Simulated assay, not measured.
Amino acid sequence: MIQRPAEAFQQGVTVGDVQAIARAAFGRRTVVESAVELGGGMYNSVYRIQLGDAAEPVVLRVAPPAERQFTSEAHLMRNEYASVPWLAPIAGLMPRMLAADFTGTVIGRDWMIQSFLPGAPAPQRLSSFPKDTHPLFFRQLGEITAAVHAVVGPHFGPIAGPGHARWSEAIMASLQQIADDVEGCRLDAADLRRAADVARAGADRLDEVSVPQLLTGDLWTVNTLLAPTPVPAICGVLDLDRTWWGDPEADWTMRMARAKQDERLAFFDSYLQPEETEAVAWRRHVYEVRHLGALRLERHRLGSEAGVEDSYRAVAVELSALAP
């Protein structure tokens, strides 16, 4: 296990928990030879499990206790589980779902077991390639994102629900949930409330988005694995638990692709950007406030006071751009 302070958000499970999960998933005679907790993620607790009768390891992911989850991040693992059939266009890059339990009867927390994907995490491996090959990585990321965004869904909002008939309703609900969570942390959420009011007043512009498309929610370098090849080649995509239905421009991936004027712009060699209009630009400012609100919560959870303060300055910039 990774040793963490008692007050840390991420808390591991016991040896007995791992054994109970393995037996619930694969039968009471299942033998767990080893379980190694993996770092890198900041939400679920993740383990590489070697079973006695298996040639390949499997991956166990355990959600935080329900009472420790923010409302705006509630049951992300269940949302990921519901997303699997919709992610069929990139199924060849994703781990297979082997077992899951959301009843709380085994260890009192949600968990899932997936196949183990070989490959090196992109944040560790990408820098080892020559700089002039990095655009290849981002071009592949653009292809993957385009394949996901091409999927059309039944409602706006999280895959597992609640669903909304209009995009404006989904955005306002999300902003309000994040604001509630921020206030629950005893932080000021007035700027996020103001953004929700602006979104409500501009509902017509938001509702120009009339087709709910599948959004990855969180796809970037940290969610990808690279193959042992001479140039960057994505061989795996992981942890798409924040998927939702909406405007592709609201996806975290699009925000990150535009964050710097560097090799990441190769993303748009394979991903067709929308026509730039005043309404598109306006909506991006609304989406950025939502991203910044979620980041404020994450930084608070990680104990980054400076990061929390930065979020207020950044939201102020976006609100000034939204002012009539």
Rank of each mutant, 00 (worst) to 15 (best):
D310K: 14
E33M: 13
P130D: 12
M77A: 01
W220L: 09
G293P: 00
G153V: 08
F138W: 14
R166Q: 11
D132L: 12
V237H: 02
T30E: 01
R283C: 07
Q177M: 15
A82L: 07
S83K: 06
I178T: 12
D269R: 08
A66H: 09
L192Q: 05
Q124K: 13
V280Y: 03
T133E: 12
S311P: 05
R109L: 09
G16A: 06
A160V: 11
V13C: 06
I113Y: 02
R264G: 03
V32I: 04
M112H: 10
D218L: 05
N44E: 03
A189H: 07
I234E: 05
A24H: 12
I171L: 14
D101A: 09
S270D: 03
V182F: 00
V15D: 15
H149G: 06
V211S: 13
A266V: 04
V315C: 00
S304G: 05
R68S: 11
I234G: 00
E276L: 12
Y312Q: 12
R23Y: 04
V148I: 15
F102D: 07
V280S: 03
T221P: 05
E56W: 03
S45M: 07
D262S: 04
C185A: 09
A82C: 11
L225E: 02
T243S: 15
H300N: 14
F137N: 00
I90C: 08
R4H: 07
W244M: 14
V152F: 07
D241A: 13
A54P: 02
A266Q: 05
T30H: 02
Q10I: 08
D110P: 00
A147S: 15
M1R: 13
L192C: 09
R193Y: 10
L214M: 15
E33W: 04
Y271L: 07
F26S: 00
A196M: 03
F129N: 01
P57K: 03
H285L: 06
W245I: 04
A279N: 07
V308S: 05
T253I: 12
D181I: 08
H134I: 11
M94Q: 13
G39A: 13
G157T: 00
S168H: 01
P130Q: 10
S115H: 08
H155G: 01
E7R: 14
E143K: 04
I107Y: 01
T243P: 07
D188L: 09
W86T: 09
M254T: 04
A259R: 14
A24V: 02
P158D: 09
S168C: 02
E263P: 03
D310V: 10
R61A: 02
A316D: 12
A74S: 15
A147Y: 07
S174Q: 10
Q177V: 04
R29D: 14
P85G: 02
A165S: 09
A189P: 01
V317R: 11
A6P: 00
V15A: 14
W252H: 06
G303L: 13
S34W: 05
T71S: 15
G119F: 03
F70M: 13
K131H: 14
R205Y: 13
A294W: 09
Q69E: 10
D180A: 14
G16F: 06
F156T: 03
R290H: 13
T221I: 15
R96H: 15
D241Y: 06
G157E: 05
A203S: 12
R283Q: 00
L136D: 03
G307R: 01
A91S: 14
G307Q: 04
T30L: 05
L302A: 09
P232E: 10
L265Q: 07
A150F: 03
P158S: 12
